[in-house]
Design a protein around this nucleic acid. Structure first.
Length: 146
DNA sequence: CACGGAACGG
DNA sequence: CCGTTCCGTG
């Protein structure tokens, strides 16, 4: 990749790749150079990926990218533990999620309690290639194709 | 509960 | 920028 060493303008910039367009946020990794802190949306995907947290947070079958926080207190506790913020709670965590609305990362599923939806409609995230949410709720990632 | 402004800090 | 904290409003 022709990465320029300059700082990114950090707008809603898109990057072209083989016919697809990816938003900037899709490129951010947990361990970026300079060791950037973990992003909340990344942490959410991390939990959704693991079956041991299915009673805490899980994909909603039916709607692609939609997930339900089944135990808000627990998700907040886990997030607080990760960020070393013991006072974290769902009120604060949900404020952070709301900031994602303008960034087009998430939106709220209105009417459904604790239910949000990722905006990866039809877009493929390079860091999570080919995400498939099956009816079982399991998320599969594969590196095939490309 | 959900929303978004405001102040603040790393 | 990316949340964290706090809070008034619906």
């Amino acid at each position: 990749e022709p990465e320029s060493p300059r700082r990114r303008p950090d707008r809603r910039r898109t990057v072209r790749g083989r016919g697809y367009q990816f938003p900037d946020w899709a490129y951010k990794t947990e361990s970026s150079p300079g060791s950037r802190q973990i992003q909340l949306w990344h942490f959410i995907l991390e939990l959704l990926q693991k079956e041991e947290f299915r009673h805490v947070i899980a994909w909603q079958q039916g709607e692609y990218g939609e997930f339900v926080i089944k135990d808000p207190d627990e998700v907040a506790r886990l997030w607080g533990r990760r960020k070393c913020k013991p006072q974290m709670n769902y009120d604060k965590l949900s404020r952070a999620l709301r900031y994602y609305y303008n960034k087009r990362i998430l939106h709220k599923t209105k009417g459904k309690r604790f239910t949000y939806k990722f905006n990866f409609n039809k877009l493929v995230m390079p860091n999570y290639p080919f995400i498939n949410i099956r009816s079982s709720g399991k998320m599969q990632t594969s590196l095939g194709g490309e």
